[in-house]
């Protein structure tokens, strides 16, 4: 399927750490999604923007985590379907749909649901990360969110060598865990 070769190109680029690929994907289908969503939902541009960003972020995370390696549909269809679900979950009023398209078909197959995290937990996790140096934060995000390799991180952050990079990452991750341990110990003692 021609569309899937396109999907594979994007997936490969993201897996290779090409962070611009996700911005290009976001930009490429954005207006189309807004238009499509506005035919289906009562909502304003900001609602559609939020849904679109969620869909893009979900796609990125699924790819990076290795959960999405192949697509049965076009990338666009996957994104629209996830954005559609997001708008439904946010109780956006659905307009009367007079026609069906491939997104409706895809919805049956795409069973991806975004996890919701307890807001209190989010606050706590943010606070823990905020207590760290900005370099530590950036390094951890690069390694564990963007999936960048040690060599790439070493080059991007001008670190001495790969050993130093690994050690720095390990220290930063250790500090973050210590922060959690400390908080939980305080809670359980108090």
């Amino acid at each position: 399927m021609a569309s899937n070769s396109n999907a594979e190109t994007i997936i490969n680029a993201l897996q290779a750490g090409d962070s611009h690929a996700i911005e290009a994907l976001y930009a490429h289908h954005r207006e189309g999604f807004f238009r499509w969503a506005s035919y289906r939902f009562e909502g304003n541009r900001q609602d559609f923007e939020d849904a679109w960003q969620d869909a893009i972020i979900a796609f990125y995370q699924q790819v990076i985590q290795g959960k999405l390696l192949h697509l049965r549909h076009e990338v666009r269809t996957w994104l629209y379907a996830v954005g559609y679900k997001r708008l439904l979950n946010n109780k956006r009023k659905l307009k009367r749909i007079l026609w069906k398209d491939q997104i409706d078909d895809a919805l049956v197959v795409i069973d991806f649901e975004q996890e919701s995290v307890d807001p209190e937990k989010i606050k706590f996790l943010h606070a823990a990360l905020k207590s760290m140096s900005s370099q530590c934060r950036e390094l951890l995000v690069a390694r564990y969110y963007q999936n960048l390799g040690i060599e790439e991180i070493q080059q991007n952050w001008n670190l001495k060598n790969s050993n130093t990079t690994s050690a720095t990452l390990s220290r930063c991750l250790g500090r973050l865990k210590d922060c959690f341990k400390k908080t939980f110990t305080t809670f359980s003692n108090g």
């Binding site: 911005e23 990360l129 934060r137 564990y144 973050l176």
Partner: peptide, 19 residues
Amino acid sequence: LALEAIRLEGEKELRRRLT
């Protein structure tokens, strides 16, 4: 837990870039 915190931070950063 650490990975979850990093994921949230990464997501926040990505959302900022997309915005």
